[in-house]
Computed example of a mutant assay.
Amino acid sequence: MKEIRTVDAVGQVLCHDMTQIIPGVMKDARFRKGHVVTEEDIPVLLSMGKEHIYVWEKDDSLYHENEAAEILCSLCMNDHMERSEVKEGKIELKSTVRGLLKIDTGLLDRINSQGNMMIASRHPNTPVEPGDKLCGTRIIPLVIKKEEMEEARKLCKGKKIFAVLPYLDKKVGLVTTGSEVFHGRVKDSFGPVLKAKVEEFGGQILGQTVTDDKPEHTTEAIMEFIRQGADMVLVSGGMSVDPDDKTPLAIRNTGAEVISYGAPVLPGAMFLLSYYKKDGKNIPITGLPGCVMYSKRTVFDLVLPRLMADDPVTKEDLDKLGKGGLCLSCDVCYYPNCGFGKGW
């Protein structure tokens, strides 16, 4: 790349896009990278304030910003994504499916620490819809050393920084505990809420079983859904530390591995997550506290998209939710476009 006087630029090839701004009329590239300057272009360039312009000077050790942008995009783009055209060293990626955005945050940080290139994205573990923007990538200078892009490739070691996991058509069993509901003294309020949340992610409700406070009855109800082929069982009620709340015991008695009883999230501190192993599959069994029944958003809204996408949740994952784990219960709920649950 070299700088020359605009009046001497006829026949030269522009090495970058040149934006023209006419207030109220346009703000876009008037001349694109690769354009061969003509006599007629000179007055236009001068009217844009370009007394001097940069033209391409071949250097085998450098990439133009758009060439480098293609490499950076290739490190990010994965299945279920579509990309924009490259423009001024920038490419954006969008989702093509309903699913869960996953990010290798350590790798993202290392790429961004390289300098001369950047990737800005949504938060990881965010539910996305078709057409939702996932990230934007950009090369900062007009040209960049090839060795810098090669270093970015080496950092990735063939891995992609981003992935979108589509939601799966899971079969879900509902078990509602509590003698007051079992005997018809109180109307069940959990069922409609859980049904709506599961179906939002494409799940199928196998059915709902109401049990009394005896843990053996709840355990049997859970196992019956698993025998019916349930991919997940949601157990609601009886999740506090009161002596007569036996749901955690009932879940443990299935033989499931309890990942965590408790999560640093409000609402939802008494949430329980476990996995039951069957035929090589890990079937989530959750214990849902009462807040899921009446609060707009709880820990269940943070975990459910991951379960519906078959994305394993660990205790370490749940522990991270404390940062941003306080729902502000806004009058108008904007979740997931807010800070709630962005800690992981």
Rank of each mutant, 00 (worst) to 15 (best):
M18S: 00
D28L: 06
I205Y: 08
V7E: 14
I205R: 13
D311M: 10
C333M: 06
N78H: 14
Y275L: 05
C338K: 04
T298I: 10
L234K: 03
Q114P: 01
K146M: 03
R110Y: 07
T96R: 15
K214S: 09
D8C: 01
M117G: 03
I42F: 09
T211W: 07
L174Q: 01
C338V: 07
L72Y: 03
F31L: 02
E67Y: 13
G341P: 02
K320I: 05
G322D: 14
V164Y: 10
M77V: 15
T137L: 09
L266F: 06
K58C: 04
Y261W: 09
K296E: 14
E92S: 15
M117S: 08
I251P: 04
V172F: 03
T314Q: 12
R122E: 01
V36D: 02
A69T: 08
V258G: 00
D279V: 09
A163D: 15
V36W: 08
I4P: 14
E70Y: 04
L93K: 04
F182M: 04
G203Y: 10
K87G: 04
E316V: 12
P289W: 11
L108N: 06
I22W: 13
E57V: 05
S240K: 12
K157I: 02
W344N: 07
L321Y: 02
E180G: 00
S95E: 13
P312V: 12
D8E: 12
L304A: 00
K146P: 08
D279W: 07
V181L: 07
P243D: 15
V86I: 15
R297Q: 00
G191Y: 11
A69E: 02
E85L: 11
L234M: 09
I119S: 04
L266G: 00
S74F: 12
I111R: 02
R98M: 12
K145M: 01
V332W: 01
E51K: 10
D331E: 14
G24L: 06
G322F: 09
E39L: 15
I91P: 03
L307K: 00
G341R: 06
S179D: 15
G280P: 07
R30N: 05
Y294P: 01
I103L: 11
D279C: 06
M117I: 14
E67K: 15
S47Y: 08
V241G: 06
P130G: 14
T105E: 08
R83E: 15
Q204M: 08
V303T: 01
T219S: 15
I140K: 08
E180R: 03
G184L: 04
T126E: 02
D109A: 13
I205W: 10
G89M: 03
P124N: 14
C291F: 07
I226T: 08
D301I: 11
V86M: 04
C76M: 03
L272Y: 00
K278W: 03
K277L: 11
K246T: 09
C333S: 06
V292K: 00
S113K: 09
G207P: 09
T6H: 03
D212E: 04
E40Q: 15
P248L: 12
I71T: 13
G158Y: 10
R227F: 03
